[in-house]
């Protein structure tokens, strides 16, 4: 099958899976509404924190109030997208390994990584993407931002790269479940990662923090996930950083793919 037809086939499958999970979600509308209200509450808490901070400070690590607001919105939207598309699927992987239910998925005539990591869409997190976008729009309005096609295109590209990098990290962590069946702490590792991405990377300054910041920018590039798209849009447009992000995305997607396949080779079925 040529790559184009293959992509079209996977897109069709993704659409069918999305429709299926949406119908499941709508069968439990009350639960869906509560999930959304928890997310609204969480955003409200993040904004309250931001308001309290800027009531007493004019800037945080060189980010002024509307710039920081944009950063918060960007993080919320990006994290929402990751949670919506991949988090639940990856979280379930260790249970599939433990029970041996993974066998059934491996027998399907479809790419294993696609099936395992994209099987379900958590529609309860979909509003996060819109809410995050709303916060970003509000921040742009506050700073009287003028539309710039180059910046906007670079933002969309780096935002997509941010999602891909976060996905690659999640796949790497998920793959470890094959060896460490109980990966509750590995998912906590994910929360650690997202907490690193939650703040501007300029806070990593000083004697011991700067090397740490460099480490998480160039070696394990989790700091660039939200920082680069937010920077591109509302602060300095740094082509070198954008280029680095593109390279990091390609490299991490490749590494995580290889590692995932290697992990599957080590899988020993638990059933029968």
């Amino acid at each position: 099958m040529n790559p184009l037809a293959r992509s079209a086939r996977y897109l069709r499958i993704l659409r069918a899976l999305a429709a299926h999970t949406l119908s499941r979600e709508l069968a439990f509308r009350g639960n869906f509404l509560v999930k959304v209200s928890v997310e609204v509450l969480w955003l409200a808490i993040m904004l309250a924190f931001y308001k309290v901070v800027f009531a007493r400070s004019s800037n945080v690590a060189g980010w002024n109030e509307p710039q920081y607001l944009f950063f918060v919105g960007c993080f919320f939207a990006l994290n929402g997208l990751i949670e919506m598309l991949f988090l639940d699927n990856c979280n379930e992987f260790s249970e599939l390994v433990r029970t041996g239910d993974l066998d059934a998925l491996l027998l399907k005539p479809i790419d294993e990584q696609f099936l395992i990591t994209c099987r379900r869409i958590d529609w309860g997190c979909a509003p996060n993407v819109f809410m995050g976008s709303g916060v970003m729009a509000m921040a742009l309005y506050q700073m009287s931002w003028r539309f710039d096609p180059v910046k906007s295109a670079a933002f969309l590209a780096t935002f997509a790269c941010g999602v891909a990098i976060a996905y690659a990290f999640m796949v790497l962590l998920t793959s470890l479940s094959v060896w460490m069946v109980r990966n509750q702490s590995l998912m906590e590792m994910w929360w650690l990662f997202s907490s690193l991405a939650r703040y501007p990377k300029e806070i990593f300054s000083g004697r011991w923090a700067e090397p740490l910041g460099m480490f998480f920018t160039y070696f394990i590039p989790i700091l660039i996930v939200v920082n680069v798209p937010a920077n591109v849009m509302v602060r300095a447009f740094d082509p070198a950083m954008v280029l680095m992000m593109l390279v990091a995305t390609a490299a991490l997607l490749w590494i995580s793919r290889r590692f995932f396949l290697f992990a599957l080779e080590s899988y020993r079925s638990a059933s029968s």
């Binding site: 901070v53 400070s57 004019s58 945080v60 702490s185 929360w191 703040y199 501007p200 806070i203």
Partner: peptide
């Protein structure tokens, strides 16, 4: 691992006080 976000919290508050 639960302690690691503490690092970012310390750095964030340092930046807030500096600002």
């Amino acid at each position: 691992l639960r302690f690691l976000p503490m690092v970012t919290t310390i750095l964030l508050w340092r930046a807030i006080y500096a600002g």
